[in-house]
Design a binder for these strands. Structure first.
Length: 433
RNA sequence: GGAGGGGUUCCCGAGUGGCCAAAGGGAUCAGACUGUAAAUCUGACGCGUAAGCUUCGGUGGUUCGAAUCCACCCCCCUCCA
């Protein structure tokens, strides 16, 4: 895609929330290959789908001929970004952050192309230039350019300053200076002229634009992507089991795929525009086709396929689809022994049990221990509604105290497997020996 | 350092000696209806099959009985110095 068309496409996808220096930026991007960056702080050992929009944004820019830099916040991660956070956060140790930073680095790397001939991507860590900086230099060279009067006007910290019951430490208050310095440093080192980020980053980005002008005398730009919202007002990116992570160890490709499959109709086309690389015209066609179709729309499936493939590759997508096909087609008895083994490899939640374990305790204990249910109450509730099935047979209330009967030897698939379903969507594979 | 206001179950938030496992709302889960939607209705929602057990910042104390009273401590906020 040509640079001139890029902004147009992003606008149409509603991926641009704010632009710093709009006309000049459009001209700037249209007139050459530019270098841009986006920062990711190691606040955990994996990124989650909330990071996906800016991450894919880097990719979109690279596809349009620009050079993306992914910045891992080894230094900023040690401070903690206060932007729109309701409370002061606790600090992690240096070792932990270094470990996380390495993991984030690997993760970020899969979305951008390091082999492109003219605009190969780079990954940098702001610890490289922050670690060596002493407090005096920082205060004199960087701090001097910031007005506290201006900083406390920022929306991102207003809540912390004004709201009763919270506060902000000097440490977190200084975060903006560090991120601003990153921008000016990348501008100096790599000729970086554009920073992108989530809408919560606006204050930090404009801070960096000002600082770069003052320190380097250079004009640089900023772009923020919108916060992903859902039509029902609930928070995007959470499920019962918590955050949806990009790391396959934390959120399996199957769970990831299912997350997107469960997108509400009201959101699915917007999400396709946000998260998929399909041309807008194609997305419009999909929407039109779904509107005139009876029953289940295609949008969710296509969205799930696109995003799962982006994050977990074709292998991950195939695994997710294999499980989905097996579980939701209804007939688990049709699975071959190989299929069952494959499902387990593909990331279907599973656990091992011994016959002896089933002789005592309760079913709710078994299901809770394996993580299928959150509590025994949940299991009891489900039992009372015939919402627990083992290899397709619904259990009832009386079965709770007799787990051995629930996993009858003659009912096992291939002598040892039991596919337990709790509710309509949650499955767990037990191997009993 | 001084004065005042706070810390309640995932979140918000009521509760000021027994009727409190703690109102209400949100989130979440399950059922019905469906399309593995939405909306709506129903149920669950500290842990436990149950008896019962463990909670209201922490530690002690008063009391037959404490989230509620007292002492000390920790943390947060506001104002003053």
């Amino acid at each position: 895609m040509e640079s001139s068309a890029l902004i147009e496409d992003l606008t149409a996808r509603e991926l641009i929330f704010q632009l710093a220096g709009e006309d000049a930026l459009i001209e700037h991007l249209a007139s050459g290959s530019r270098t841009l960056y986006c920062g990711f702080d190691p606040t955990a050992d994996s990124l989650h789908i909330g990071h996906l929009v800016p991450l894919l944004m880097l990719r979109r820019f690279q596809q349009a001929g620009h050079k993306p830099i992914a910045l891992v916040g080894g230094a900023t991660g040690m401070i903690g970004d206060p932007s729109f956070k309701a409370q002061e956060r606790s600090l992690n140790t240096t070792d932990v952050i270094a470990d996380w930073a390495q993991k984030i680095r690997d993760q970020v790397s899969q979305f951008i192309d390091f082999d492109a001939s003219t605009n190969a991507a780079e990954v940098v860590n702001n610890l490289d230039w922050m670690a060596g900086m002493d407090a005096l230099s920082f205060l004199r060279d960087v701090g001097k350019h910031f007005s506290v009067n201006a900083m406390i006007q920022k929306e991102s910290v207003k809540q912390r300053l004004e709201r009763e019951g919270t506060g902000i430490s000097f440490t977190e208050f200084s975060y903006m200076l560090m991120q601003s310095y990153d921008f000016s440093e990348l501008n100096r080192r790599h000729g970086c002229t554009l920073q992108i980020g989530g809408s919560d980053q606006w204050g930090n980005i404009t801070g960096g634009i000002d600082l770069t002008r003052r320190m380097n005398g250079a004009q640089v730009f900023g772009l923020t992507v919108p916060l992903v919202t859902k039509s029902d007002g609930t928070k995007f990116g959470k499920t019962e089991s918590g955050t949806v992570w990009l790391d396959a160890q934390r959120t399996s490709p199957y769970a990831f795929y299912q997350f997107w499959m469960n997108t509400a109709d009201a959101d699915v086309y917007k999400f396709l525009r946000y998260f998929s690389f399909r041309p807008l015209a194609e997305i419009a066609d999909i929407e039109a086709a779904d509107a005139s179709r009876e029953g289940r729309p295609e949008g969710q499936r296509l969205l799930a396929e696109d995003v799962t493939s982006l994050v977990h590759g074709d292998t991950g997508l195939l695994a997710a689809q294999r499980i989905t096909e097996a579980l939701f087609s209804g007939d688990s008895a049709a699975l071959s022994e190989n299929d069952v083994l494959q499902l387990r490899l593909d990331g279907l939640p599973s656990s091992q049990l011994s016959r002896a374990q089933l002789q005592e305790g309760s079913l709710s204990q078994v299901l809770t221990d394996s993580g299928l249910a959150g509590s025994g109450k949940q299991v009891k509730d489900a039992l009372g509604r015939e919402a627990v099935t083992v290899n397709g047979r619904a259990l009832c209330w009386e079965d709770n105290m007799n787990p051995a009967a629930c996993f009858g030897a003659d009912e096992a698939l291939y002598g040892r497997f039991y596919l337990v379903k709790l509710g309509k969507k949650k499955y767990h594979l037990y191997e009993v020996s």
